[in-house]
Amino acid sequence: MDTVIVTGASRGLGRHCAMSLHERGYRVIGISRSVKGDTPYEIRSADVADSASLSKALGDLKRDKSVYALINAAGIASMNLVITTPAETVRKIINTNLVGTILACQLVAPAMIRRGSGRIINFSTLGVPLAIKGEAIYIASKAGVEGFSRAFAREMSPHGVTVNTVAPGPIDTALIEKVPRDKIDAVVSRQIIERQAEPSDVWNIVSLLLSAESSMISGETIHVGGA
């Protein structure tokens, strides 16, 4: 049974992906800062921004050849103007979204190299191409994820591992629960497909990238809804 590691697996898109994977028979190992509530898949507690914490949670998988994929869905946002965002918030966003993604890749990639195949799927945002006002720091962290993924894809290619990025627009999850409706509608109106995507739309793309048929797709960013 193939194993898929999902960060941010206790809520939002991470939870949706983890549930969908579990339903399709994958062994899912979810990573979450806090372990609470019932999930039908294994959840391990770790802060993705903390290398020691993440290493403790994932260390035993380094030689596990059942590890097929890593989905880096852990992320935080703080919608604010740059000049009114505290420095600590800036660091927290970059550390969780960008550094956390890099650290998880570092820890899980050796298992895929040993296996000789694998899939890494990172998360960005439509905010990167749309340059949404009030999201500059969040967008900076996600633009970093896109650049990292593209270059890391080249590094992993000889080992049969693809690395791609999925970039959704606003999805109704906890991440944007405080964003006013009119702002969400304004972003959706700038998508090529002017419909707010559902978690299942994101899963459909994740599912494609996990499939054997996606073996020639790597280093790409797929914008959910188009930008």
Partner: peptide, 14 residues
Amino acid sequence: DSADLVVLLLAVED
């Protein structure tokens, strides 16, 4: 090359 070096280092780790 760099790809083989990574494979070598993993083998050395084991």
